[in-house]
Simulated assay, not measured.
Amino acid sequence: MKKIFVYVCALCVGYGSLMSCQPANEQQKAEESEEMDLPAPIVVKPSLAAPDQFESVLTSYFMLKDSFVKSDTSEINQKATDLIEATNKVDTTKLNTEVQTKWKTSKAMIIRSVTTLQTEKGLEDKRAGFEDLSKIMYEVVNTYGAKTTVYKQYCPMALNDKGAYWLSVNKEIKNPYFGNKMLECGEVQEVLTFEK
């Protein structure tokens, strides 16, 4: 039995992300036996660095992502409301005109995406909306920066094998597109650190 387990672990290493998209209980066993192989960190120099002002928006996004991991639609709707509130509360009055102008566009995109996500009835439709939001948030962290390391994570099987990514503050994969069905399906594509 032990030899079979070692063989399975070797296959997991060899097949990389393909093998990472197995049911959570099998994946957990495999990950316990090997180190997570992460890409080299990318040091991002935000074009309009202002991480303090946008921290609450990122935190709200991460909490929304966690509610997708739980597959809880009522919590998803509540966390989406929290994200809209955090986005509306961002105060850019002490920042330069370029940041203020750019933020108006970013803010409108976030609110439109989250509102659309909220109006969807089914969990899978909400997850498709979350993909759109994640693309916007990726641009937000690259534009304004973040106070912590951000992991861009990707699942090739998400959204009917179209593939989709999300952002996380944890390197461990907790897939918002599958929840407990395939909790650890995915890989870290980028490790983003931010120039101070």
Rank of each mutant, 00 (worst) to 15 (best):
F5M: 11
Y7V: 08
V8E: 10
V8A: 10
C9A: 13
L11W: 13
V13F: 06
G14C: 11
P23S: 04
E26F: 13
K29Q: 14
D37K: 15
D37A: 14
P41K: 08
P41C: 08
V43S: 10
K45F: 02
S47G: 02
S47L: 10
D52W: 01
E55L: 05
S56N: 14
V57E: 00
V57M: 00
T59P: 01
F62G: 00
M63R: 14
D66S: 15
S67N: 11
K70E: 13
S74A: 14
S74L: 12
I76P: 07
T81A: 09
I84Q: 07
K89G: 06
K89A: 13
V90Y: 00
D91A: 00
T92A: 11
T93E: 08
K94Q: 12
N96S: 04
E98Y: 05
V99T: 14
K102I: 03
K104W: 00
T105M: 07
T105H: 02
I110N: 01
I111K: 01
L117V: 04
T119S: 15
T119D: 14
E120I: 06
G122Y: 06
E124A: 08
E124F: 01
E124Y: 02
R127H: 03
R127Q: 11
F130V: 04
D132N: 14
L133N: 04
M137L: 15
E139Y: 09
E139T: 15
V140R: 01
V141P: 10
V141W: 10
N142I: 03
K147D: 13
Y151R: 06
Q153Y: 03
P156M: 05
D161I: 00
K162R: 14
K162I: 09
A164R: 06
W166D: 04
I173V: 15
P176T: 07
N180H: 06
M182W: 04
L183Q: 09
G186W: 07
E187R: 13
L192G: 10
